[in-house]
Write a protein that binds this DNA or RNA. Structure first.
Lengths: 165, 165
DNA sequence: CTTGCTGCAAAAGTTTTGCACACGT
DNA sequence: ACGTGTGCAAAACTTTTGCAGCAAG
């Protein structure tokens, strides 16, 4: 409520993640470079799902230029550090989301508009653990993606049908 | 039980699917070519999940040569005809499975060995429909993929740890 | 100062496309 | 015959890699 920008929940999130990444890198004998810091910042600024190229474009727009190669290399490290994780939306391109400290999410994807809605589904984790146990697997993660047609796309479809008929 | 090969469950499956594809093509004003028939046969011969290039190699080995481009074009039609569907295993390459008349399957993937186990999970369809309804979506399909470490890979890991320690 | 990192451009891998010719209906 | 389909090779796209110079610890 003060004039000066107060620390937000986001700030509280940003500080530790930067530290966590730093610690991860140190443990692996890797370096915390300005490029890696910039990329982590860009990732933290993304509210939902993102792609490598999207990150590149947005960083260029913000004059935080980093090469494509470095983005790909850093995304890999961020995944190893469990800060982000891959979301399988389509098989053409990799999609990521900030996942540190978040429960795994399900995704509802509109096949017409590509709109993506995240939802929680804690019961999936139980189902995962049960199935892993049945097959002797050690669970790592899981993905649940639902494909459907969004209300908006449904309206568009109906409009088309009227024209056709 | 006779000497002549009796009709198998597979034969019963193959006949209608070929007919179904044919009908689908006719409806779209497309042609049922020998290449499309050969590709459908190759797909029907696959018990589980397959990739485009795998199909190409196997067809070459069986002297049923078709071009890469035709395989990709035909896989697209088979998906439109709902005979196969895409399985999201990784974001590098498309994976498919014969899906006609089968209930949607979940997949348990070993992150070390890439072994894939299919499992049924009817409750997922209910969950899907419930979530679609909540968001006003018209359900199309869904995917549930679990990542874990298979028993074999676990043993290999333990062996490594012993060596390291 | 040593080791790892970056950017660039080229390579690699999958999927798509343009075009001339061939084939199903 | 007509309109589609096929094969080929090239293009398109995402991701990876080799290398020379640069920067972090």
């Amino acid at each position: 409520m003060s004039e000066a920008k107060p620390a937000t929940a986001d700030d509280q999130l940003i500080m530790p993640l930067c530290a966590i990444f730093r610690r991860f890198l140190k443990r692996q004998g890797l370096k915390f470079t300005t490029e890696r810091a910039k990329i982590l910042d860009a990732v933290l600024a993304k509210p939902g799902i993102f792609e490598a190229d999207e990150l590149l474009q947005e960083m260029r727009a913000a004059d935080q230029r980093v090469s494509k190669a470095t983005i790909y290399r850093t995304l890999k490290h961020l995944m190893e550090a469990k800060i982000i994780s891959e979301v399988l939306i389509d098989s053409r391109q990799a999609h990521y989301r900030l996942s540190f400290g978040k429960e795994p999410k399900g995704h509802l994807v509109c096949v017409e508009t590509n709109q993506i809605i995240e939802f929680s589904a804690a019961e999936l984790t139980d189902m995962r653990n049960r199935l892993c146990k049945e097959h002797g697997f050690d669970p790592v993660s899981h993905r649940f993606v639902i494909y459907g047609i969004s209300p908006e796309a449904q309206k568009a479809e109906q409009a088309e049908e009227v024209q056709e008929g």
